[in-house]
Every structure is written in C-alpha cells, then in structure tokens.
C-alpha cells in the first residue's frame, strides 16, 4: 500500500514510479486534497528550479585564463632550461676536476718505476689517482674547490633571480 508521502511525490515528479505504483498514486491523489496541494506546490518548485539562473563570468575570463596558462607553460619551459643550464655548469666543473685528476694520475704513473706487469700498472695508476684526489681535498686545496662551488652557486642565484625578474615583468605586462 503506497502512502502519499514526500518521497513518493518526488519520485512521481521525476518519473521514477513503475506503472502499478503510478496508477495507485493517481488514485490516491484523486481522493486527497492535501496530496494534490502538496504535489502542485512541489511541481511549481520543480518548474522554478528548471529555470534556475545561469550566472556569467566576466567577459574576459577565458582570455585571462588562457594568458595565465600560456605564462605557466613558458615558466615551465624556463624552469627546465634553468635546471639544464645549471646541471651543465656543474657537469663541466666535475668533468674538469676528473680530467685534472686523470692527467695528474697518468703523469705520475708514467714518471714512476716502469712496470711490465699490467696489473701492477693499474694498481699503481689507481693508487696515484687516489693520492691525487687526497691531495686535491687536502686542507690547502679545499678552499679552492669551495670557491669554485661558491662561484657556481652565485651564478645559479643570479640566473634564478634574473628569471624571476623576467617572469614578473611579463606578468605585469599581461595585467
């Protein structure tokens, strides 16, 4: 037995009742003034909700948003370029240090006692390389390496702030 409650009336409006239920609800509505009044009010509300207002954004919303998207894409590209540049600088510095160590190690190996045994040669070579690295990292040279890295960091900072300045200028031009 169906009762004319709010849920049934809402389902009636949404067309969710099956055929048997629909017939039963229609019969009940015929007998109930209150039911008809509540249904009519609900249908009026449903009708008004169907005419719910669509608010509009500012006319330039899309163009401003697309400008922001383009700016973001540029800044992502710049960030990638920045990371690539810095990685390259550090790579070059590292290669220079390795090259320097290698040169000194080879020089020491060839100037030392001539060994005919290749294993001895490589052991000698790596010992010299380690010795060179130890010399480079000695208290005397560590300040030079520190200076090189500090210089790298200063350059990195400069490029970073220069990027920021450019981004701000572009943003102010867009606004």
């Amino acid at each position: 037995m169906i009762q004319l409650n709010d849920e049934i009336l809402n389902q009636y409006i949404d067309g969710e009742l099956n055929q048997a239920a629909l017939i039963e609800v229609k019969e009940l509505l015929k007998k109930s003034d209150d039911g008809r009044r509540r249904l009519a009010a609900l249908q009026r509300v449903h009708g008004e909700l169907g005419k719910i207002k669509i608010y509009e954004t500012g006319a330039d919303f899309t163009s401003l948003l697309m400008a922001k998207i383009r700016k973001n894409a540029i800044s992502i590209k710049k960030d990638r370029y920045f990371v690539f540049s810095i990685s390259t600088i550090f790579m070059i510095i590292s290669l220079a240090i390795i090259g320097y160590v290698f040169t000194i190690a080879v020089g020491s190996s060839s100037s030392g006692s001539m060994s005919t045994n290749s294993i001895d040669y490589y052991i000698n070579y790596f010992t010299n390389a380690l010795e060179t690295v130890r010399n480079i990292l000695s208290a005397k040279n560590i300040s030079i390496i520190g200076s090189i890295f500090s210089f790298g960091i200063i350059i990195t900072g400069y490029i970073f702030f220069e990027n920021l300045r450019h981004a701000k200028r572009r943003l102010s031009r867009l606004q």
Binding site: D6, E7, N10, I13, D33, R36, R37, R38, A40, A41, L42, R44, V45, H46, E48, L49
Partner: peptide, 23 residues
Amino acid sequence: MLYRSRNALRDELMKTNYEKELL
C-alpha cells in the same frame, strides 16, 4: 538531498498566499 531541497522550498511556498492558487 534533492528531495529535501525541493521539500524545503515547497514548505516555504505553502506558507505563502500562493497556495490558494495551487488548487
């Protein structure tokens, strides 16, 4: 939530003079 929203609006409507127009 959908039914309650409609019912709440309907209840407000029923409190107004508009209900005379409904039948």
